[in-house]
């Protein structure tokens, strides 16, 4: 048994909210730099260079990369030998978000009720997903999610007979419909299998995976490569203004499913694919 103080969680979450909104992970920067070399459209290249400049300004002058600093998604992988002390864990996470968004000059983009729509004023509540895993560590991933791209995400409840071709069609449909609204170049998180909600969760998790690490299953890895090429052939381009850089990566996650179904969730993220992971 290992004891972790909940105020330690609060402090960690706070720091991660800030870090994620000012600095992208190295793999995302590499994707941007690489695409500048391969983009064929002059306007597309100009936009990609502005995005490179934007990342530099964000880090140097401490201005969030994007003004939509997102609704905060938190993945908690909690070792089953961990004991939390010092109060409600859920509230400790929310307090971390609250402080991170206040002290980090991040935008408060959350309304407390989807119909009444009053801003909660502190970007809470975050959306928290808990997983219990073996061990005595806590792995935390904070992923602020902008809604330009979130709003273009889709779920498709396919039939088993639709097979892999149906999956490809679903991904391309979602990306084509998203077009310029989702701030391309995009990162595409795909969840295949499970149930309705499991597919959606997998697709969100897929966005937090390092884009230089392919899927484990060989068919999923091939799907990632084929879909990235097909998406870039759509020529939506940077900012949706044309060019062969429509997506930086396609990350696929899979799970077992029911004999009667083939759920496919496509979670679209803009080029500001933010996530930060730490293990306590």
């Amino acid at each position: 048994m290992r004891t972790i103080q909940t105020n330690n969680i609060t402090e960690t979450i706070k720091e991660m909210c800030i870090e994620a909104n000012y600095f992208l992970t190295e793999d995302m920067k590499h994707r941007l730099d690489a695409s500048y070399q391969t983009e064929t459209d002059p306007l597309g290249r100009q936009i990609l260079s502005k995005l490179q400049e934007n990342l530099e300004i964000a880090a140097k002058d401490l201005i969030p990369i994007c003004q939509d600093t997102g609704m905060t998604v938190v993945f908690m992988e909690i070792g089953q030998d961990v004991h939390f002390e010092g109060g409600d864990l859920n509230e400790a996470i929310q307090e971390g978000v609250r402080r991170g968004y206040r002290e980090g000059y991040l935008r408060k983009s959350v309304v407390s009720d989807p119909i009444i729509r009053e801003n909660s004023g502190d970007n809470t509540p975050a959306v928290i997903h808990y997983d219990i895993v073996p061990g005595d560590r806590v792995k935390i991933t904070v992923a602020p999610k902008g809604f330009g791209s979130e709003s273009m995400s889709r779920i498709f409840m396919l039939k088993p007979a639709d097979g892999i071709e149906g999956v490809k069609n679903a991904i391309l449909t979602a990306v084509r419909d998203a077009g310029p609204n989702a701030c391309p170049p995009m990162v595409i998180g795909v969840g295949i299998g499970g149930t309705f909600e499991k597919a959606a969760l997998l697709s969100k998790k897929a966005l937090t995976r390092d884009t230089s690490v392919p899927a484990e299953k060989s068919w999923a890895k091939e799907l990632e490569e084929e879909m990235l090429a097909a998406i870039n052939e759509l020529m939506i381009g940077p900012a949706g203004l044309g060019g062969n850089t429509t997506a930086f990566a396609v990350n696929v996650e899979t799970y077992a499913t029911h004999i009667a179904g083939l759920p496919v969730a496509v979670n679209i993220c803009c080029h500001v694919n933010r996530h930060s992971t730490r293990t306590i």
């Binding site: 934007n54 003004q67 330009g148 077009g179 609204n181 900012a239 949706g240 803009c270």
Partner: peptide, 30 residues
């Protein structure tokens, strides 16, 4: 802004001689 507009907006733009610009989405610091 950024992204597509409706046919109604397009019609009203033509009717009134207005213009729609895109700024680069996700380049807020710049």
């Amino acid at each position: 802004g950024k992204g597509k507009r409706s046919a109604e907006v397009r019609d009203a733009m033509i009717r009134n001689g207005a213009v729609y610009f895109a700024a680069i989405g996700g380049a807020g610091a710049l």
